[in-house]
């Protein structure tokens, strides 16, 4: 069987991380195609529910990326993101899901290299973890 190809949803803020992704493109930095990104205005828009929805729909990993602390285009949105994601990780762990499947990164619009690196790492890590299967088990065994 083919090696498992994970699918990862990335929520990118418009002003830094998405721009970093654009720059990665300009610089032709290569990374695996397993990441599908959704552009939001600010990382603070990401609700834990979107993370859960992604997992439920079959994502093996979720990346949330925003501006570096202090750089958020909306002044302080990313601090909220940070707290939300950290707390979300705790819950994932309690629920038996490896918290590494949810990753928060600060990627600036100048960090095309970092963008590509994060993508590579994340795909590699999630590959290691294997597929995430949230389909329901039978109630009666």
């Amino acid at each position: 069987m083919d090696e498992h190809e994970p699918r990862i949803i990335a929520f990118l803020c418009n002003w830094c991380s998405y721009a970093g992704g654009d720059l990665a493109g300009v610089n032709r930095e290569q990374y695996p195609p397993n990441i599908l990104s959704i552009r939001l205005m600010c990382s603070s828009r990401v609700s834990p529910e979107h993370v859960l929805e992604s997992f439920q729909e079959g994502a093996d990993g979720v990346l949330v990326a925003g501006c570096h602390p202090g750089d958020c285009h909306y002044i302080n949105g990313n601090y909220k993101t940070k707290r939300k994601i950290e707390m979300m990780s705790k819950i994932l762990k309690d629920m038996g899901i490896n918290p590494e499947r949810l990753r928060l990164e600060w990627i600036s619009s100048a960090e095309g290299g970092k963008f590509a690196k994060v993508m590579k790492e994340m795909v590699e890590e999630v590959k290691q973890l294997g597929p995430l299967d949230l389909s329901d088990v039978p109630l009666e065994e």
């Binding site: 834990p48 529910e49 859960l52 601090y79 909220k80 707290r83 707390m87 819950i91």
Partner: peptide, 24 residues
């Protein structure tokens, strides 16, 4: 609403530690 817990988490995590978050 589907998920009460994550909703509350989102709300609470946003406001806990909000004061002075820039310099924390």
């Amino acid at each position: 609403m589907k998920d009460q817990g994550s909703r509350m988490l989102s709300a609470l995590a946003s406001v806990v530690g909000i004061e002075g978050e820039e310099n924390m």
